[in-house]
Design a protein around this nucleic acid. Structure first.
Lengths: 159, 159
DNA sequence: GCGGCATCTTACGTTAACGTCAAGATGAGC
DNA sequence: GCTCATCTTGACGTTAACGTAAGATGCCGC
């Protein structure tokens, strides 16, 4: 039967993890510098355990939701602690809720900015209609723009 | 009759503008370094005209909606140009629309992150309820938190 | 002539998360 | 023994928008 690439006793090289999670060796070493990862060594070379892989997964999840590496570190530090993860979970919960509040505030800022910009757009369009309607973007231009963006997405491959 | 502090022929010192727009001298000099402002001089000292003041106003508006100083500069450069502002308006319009698209995309990212975090919160709460309900934040804590945040807002003065 | 204040220029410091060399070690394959 | 590929450890570079001294200049009133 085929080897389960993720069974708990497996180990990983730096490159394997990078390929799996689409990051660079430099990033993993950086996380190590920051104390977020502490892989074993085989001679000079780093050897990542299944637990290291789990931690990396959490790091990347944290990054996706906008936590700083420092905050992620605080959470991870509790993983190796006392009551089987309860303290860690409680801390994560707090951090998560804080982040939700911060994100919602950010979204409000963004909504305000969008409103302000839309007002600005309307003003500009009115003035341009009155003075230089030839400078207004036309439907054809918009169409072109859309096609360019779709092109970009294709060339970038699967996102 | 009282002097109109904003009549077109007025001039301003760096400090006056800073007070009016709540920014620092360092910021104005920085904008000048970047070519966004070019105040006249009286000996060594900067003398800002009414037009300079208008440009500063635009700079700060641009910043509020998240345009970089470089982008703001592109727009401002067209102010001193050809067709009485039409080109500038057209460019502003493009930039504004680009920014709206970018902001809407950013908002989607934020919404995704919030969703992910809420899922995480639910998971954590379920697990904590099952294992260590004593570690769950209680209504009293939440109340306290709210009061602290209100305090913070008050001490910070008018936003 | 002097304290005090506003202004000036110059230039390094800050923050986050890595990117980008550089230079050397190691093992595999031929 | 040679080359290749991969790994290692430094250590400086990047980006944005200023902050923060440090030290000079200049005007005012007294």
């Amino acid at each position: 039967m085929p080897t389960d690439l993720r069974r708990p006793q497996r180990t990983y090289t730096i490159r394997q993890l990078c390929l799996e999670f689409k990051c660079t060796p430099r990033a993993l070493r950086f996380y190590e510098d920051k104390g977020l990862l502490t892989p074993a060594r085989d001679g000079m070379n780093r050897v990542y355990s299944y637990k290291d892989r789990a931690r990396l997964k959490l790091i990347l999840q944290g990054k996706r939701v906008g936590l700083s590496l420092a905050e992620i570190g605080e959470i991870l530090d509790l993983y190796d602690l006392d009551d089987g993860g309860a303290a860690q979970m409680a801390k994560s919960l707090r951090k998560f809720k804080e982040r939700i509040v911060a994100l919602e505030s950010q979204r409000e800022d963004i909504d305000r900015a969008i409103q302000e910009l839309k007002v600005g757009c309307n003003n500009l369009e009115q003035k341009l209609i009155a003075t230089r309607p030839d400078l207004l973007p036309r439907a054809a231009d918009y169409d072109q723009m859309l096609r360019q963006r779709l092109d970009g997405l294709e060339h970038a491959g699967a996102k």
